[in-house]
Design a protein around this nucleic acid. Sequence first.
DNA 1: GGGAACCTTACATTTACCTTAAAAATTCGG
DNA 2: CCGAATTTTTAAGGTAAATGTAAGGTTCCC
Lengths: 229, 229
Amino acid sequence: MNLYESKILIVDDEPDILRMVGELLKKEGYVHVDLASDCCMAKRMFGTVEYHMVLLDVMLPDGDGFTLFDEIRCVAEVPVIFLSARDEDTARLRGLGLGADDYITKPFLPQELLLRIRAVLRRTYHMEDIVKNDTVGDAVINWSAGTIQTPDSEYLLTAKEYALLKKLCENRGRILSINILCDTLWSDGSYGYENSLMVHIRRLREKLEKNPSKPEHLLTARGLGYKLV
Amino acid sequence: MNLYESKILIVDDEPDILRMVGELLKKEGYVHVDLASDCCMAKRMFGTVEYHMVLLDVMLPDGDGFTLFDEIRCVAEVPVIFLSARDEDTARLRGLGLGADDYITKPFLPQELLLRIRAVLRRTYHMEDIVKNDTVGDAVINWSAGTIQTPDSEYLLTAKEYALLKKLCENRGRILSINILCDTLWSDGSYGYENSLMVHIRRLREKLEKNPSKPEHLLTARGLGYKLV
DNA sequence: GGGAACCTTACATTTACCTTAAAAATTCGG
DNA sequence: CCGAATTTTTAAGGTAAATGTAAGGTTCCC
């Protein structure tokens, strides 16, 4: 699974903070973000959705974050980051050592929160970090939209093109053998797809290169494979 | 009244800040935003329009913000947020306790200013926080009413359609995989709902698109998912 | 010059998605 | 609690976009 597909629950009683953090995560790219303003609501949501991560305020109108934390941990091994307003809480968190994965004190820098969330998700679920927008020459690849933007026009990527280009981008500058590329496109033991691969390469070149027949970025290494530079 | 219909006056002598803040508010959705670059201008505008909120710089070319504040408060009980460049001003504000509703020091994060404005408006006028209407092409989505308005007619959204459209709107421009969409519609571990999802997509298209069979906004990315543009 | 590796194009096929109608489930008013 | 109305799901045949195939062309290198 992809980092940004993690389901995250935010529990905080201040509506502004709640919305702000929610929008921050959405904007960063997290697809599934839910909000709860008190323990009761949080528990209800926790019953219906399997979250990958919980951001938990210490102060809540109907009970404190610590007890909610215990209740959550009884049910699932989901990682938790505490958001605390006061330093005392932080001290208490540190002292208790009750197994929170991280804590951060308000006010915090948005960037810092994002970093910590990503760090926790990565070490809990061993998720690969996904790429932001890549560029190939003048072309901008927008992975989340599945598009290639060139100065002249915008192209949609098909599923195979997407997978192929991704593999090439992840190994930029490195030659990938035809075998390896076929393996990533056709999971079933794959011989006989060499020509098909060629056609996909051609189609990518038509979307990436000025002159697809004289490629400047998606190059062929005769007898070895292809590489993206 | 709606939060975003509040009339707001910004008073600041730095033209760049003035324009920046003005555009920020406009972009956020505030419909009525006026700008003034000095006390004189501010007073003139204040005579002609009944503002709901004033953002006031402390430093002004023809008098300071504090006296302007007093003059304003003699006339109307309008809430004021001070924008101060220096920490000393902040200290003075705090000390004076002259009844400003909030203050924020430059430079500030756009997001923070928006939050504070919203908070002040809410507690002054007891405005319900409204969900901003989204639009998809010519169609206006009214979340609180659960309707879609098109030039031709008005449709009611069913529960599933509502949830689906919301998810797509929250991730506008981003491809959402069929898996993710199914997860949001059927929280219980959900396989076998792919076809059902398709039908809901079709129904949404019938309410959103000119020609549901040639969608221009709710697009399918074959092999990848769906996206709203 | 000739073979090998790769390109290119047009066309065939396949698969993922569309569409519709009808069945099942749910909601709602009496 | 029952029946009507609405919503949701299932099912099945249809469609076209994405993919695969094949055949002739090009380039490279010995």
